[in-house]
Design a binder for these strands. Structure first.
Lengths: 105, 105
DNA sequence: CCTTGATATGTAGCGAGACTACATATAGCC
DNA sequence: GGCTATATGTAGTCTCGCTACATATCAAGG
């Protein structure tokens, strides 16, 4: 699955990934590829703007780090981000139920 | 849930409804409200443009009918629409699996 | 008769989300 | 030197679903 199938769940996926520990954008992409069983392969043009959006919203905090000459922007989930994640999860479960009842369980 | 939680599943929901039998827009809204257990209440400004889009794509066919002075545009799903519905359902199942593995089953 | 609410369809304008394609830069390996 | 992986980001675009509005018929109640 490429990213055009995630339909509004991108923020929830990123926040869920960051809940396991802080990470930089490239690592988040790799982590999602792994945890999804190689099914998700998000383009940078999708993830980096999403991280900036999440930071603007106060759900994540980013800081610049250095790793052998390579600059990295490492993001950590905030308290507000945890609340947003809980809401995202609840919304997802609600959608799942609606889809199940309409598509047939 | 209002419609801002359906995230790209609108077409699939409408096609699934029409698979049970042809219907006009207002009836589709009512049917989705019912089958979802009153959880979905889609505004007309969401459903009618979606139906026109689906018709343009060849997934549904509309015809004008008369019901006691009230004009109705009744839509039926096409063969292509059934294929699109199958694809939409498969995409949904794939997303569901990805979400399950990332959020934790 | 008139008003209100349900039935019924639609448009206009807007904002958000995710895309593709591109641009930039470093590190490691051959 | 050149290729690949690592790493971040921008520009421009397209689709989707929203709110708010416009229109029209019909049924029920006052």
């Amino acid at each position: 699955m490429d990213a055009d199938g995630i339909h509004g769940q991108l923020d929830t996926l990123i926040l869920a990934t960051l809940k396991r520990g802080e990470a930089h954008g490239y690592a988040i992409i790799a982590a999602l590829r792994e945890t999804s069983g190689e099914q998700l392969d998000l383009p940078s043009g999708t993830v980096y703007p999403a991280l900036r959006r999440l930071e603007r919203s106060g759900y994540v905090e980013g800081k610049w780090t250095q790793a052998g000459g390579r600059r990295r922007r490492v993001y950590a989930i905030t308290a507000e981000g945890l609340i947003a994640l809980a809401k995202g999860r609840a919304d997802w479960l609600a959608l799942r139920e609606v889809m199940a009842s309409v598509l047939g369980a």
